[in-house]
């Protein structure tokens, strides 16, 4: 019986192991190896940390990363602030069909590819776009307004893309809050603000952390939205990786940037967890 059971276990685990091994571990090992090879001459490589050093010595690179990280944190915070009331409504007010409908509405934009969604925003925001046209129609502005190719447009696009990934874990966390606990909060004299601050938010913390991690990671690693909505001013770190791999054909440098993106953004997530006093374990259980 025992060998048979082991075989079953092995077969059941096989897809996951293969997936992890071939699609995640193997490429990353390859990238790590690649990133540690310095180009010393045409087609001549040697082992070294030069590619990593390049990141810290060339201000453009680390500044781009810092900008990406700070904007991603900003996007995460804005997404959280916007998603919280929506999730609260879905989890605690809406019932039955309405609840399902609202979740579906949040999901609906994701049936369209990210590229198309971003192009949609471009049509709205560009100089000859709908919003500019409407502003001229109502006489609020005298000439066409360009709303693309600035940080605001990038943040808008990224928040839009991250909203769903914040709403779902938040709504999940809020749903498990017993209604009578909230009522007890009021009954004992709490104002709306007190109940929110001392009961609802602490209860939702694992959901907040889970949503924030997902949105932050998606935002940091996003490529299409900052490139399309930010244009030349986008300056997203993923563009640097793209440029190294595709434009400059400097794969080792690109690989080093890729590893740095992974390590540095993980470090930011870790710092965030420490600051909010959450452990990854409880957060994952919530998500």
């Amino acid at each position: 019986m025992k060998p048979a059971r082991n075989l079953t276990l092995f077969l059941l685990l096989a897809p996951a192991v293969i997936w992890l091994g071939l699609l995640i571990i193997l490429p990353h090992v390859e990238i790590l190896v690649l990133s540690l090879s310095e180009r010393v001459g045409p087609r001549v490589y040697k082992f070294g940390f030069g590619n990593y050093l390049e990141f810290f010595t060339e201000p453009l690179y680390w500044r781009t990363f810092a900008r990406t990280a700070i904007m991603s944190i900003l996007v995460t915070v804005i997404t959280l602030v916007l998603a919280f009331p929506i999730a609260l409504y879905i989890a605690r007010v809406a019932q039955g069909r309405l609840k399902a409908m609202l979740l579906l509405l949040c999901l609906l934009p994701f049936w369209v590819s990210e590229l198309v969604r971003t192009l949609g925003w471009m049509m709205l925001l560009r100089e000859t776009g709908l919003i500019s046209y409407l502003l001229q129609m109502t006489g609020l502005v005298g000439q066409p307004v360009e709303m693309l190719y600035n940080d605001g447009a990038v943040i808008l696009g990224l928040v839009y893309g991250g909203l769903l990934f914040m709403i779902v874990p938040l709504a999940n966390a809020l749903e498990s809050l017993e209604p009578s606990v909230v009522e007890a909060g009021y009954d004992l004299g709490g104002s709306r603000w007190t109940v929110l601050r001392r009961i609802v938010i602490p209860h939702a913390t694992p959901g907040i952390v889970a949503g924030s991690i997902i949105v932050f990671m998606l935002t940091v690693g996003n490529f299409a939205t900052p490139v399309l909505l930010g244009g030349k001013n986008g300056l997203w770190f993923t563009e640097q990786i793209y440029a190294q791999f595709i434009t400059r054909f400097n794969w080792p440098q690109g690989a080093a940037f890729g590893m740095l993106l992974l390590v540095l953004s993980s470090a930011i997530v870790w710092a965030g967890l420490r600051l909010s006093g959450q452990s990854l374990g409880t957060t994952l259980r919530q998500a």
Partner: peptide, 21 residues
């Protein structure tokens, strides 16, 4: 008069203690 302004306090069926405190 809202619940939080009444001189009345309630012990809930589920007790509704605050688990986060």
């Amino acid at each position: 008069v809202p619940a939080n302004r009444r001189p009345v306090n309630m012990v809930f069926q589920s007790l509704a203690l605050f688990p986060m405190m």
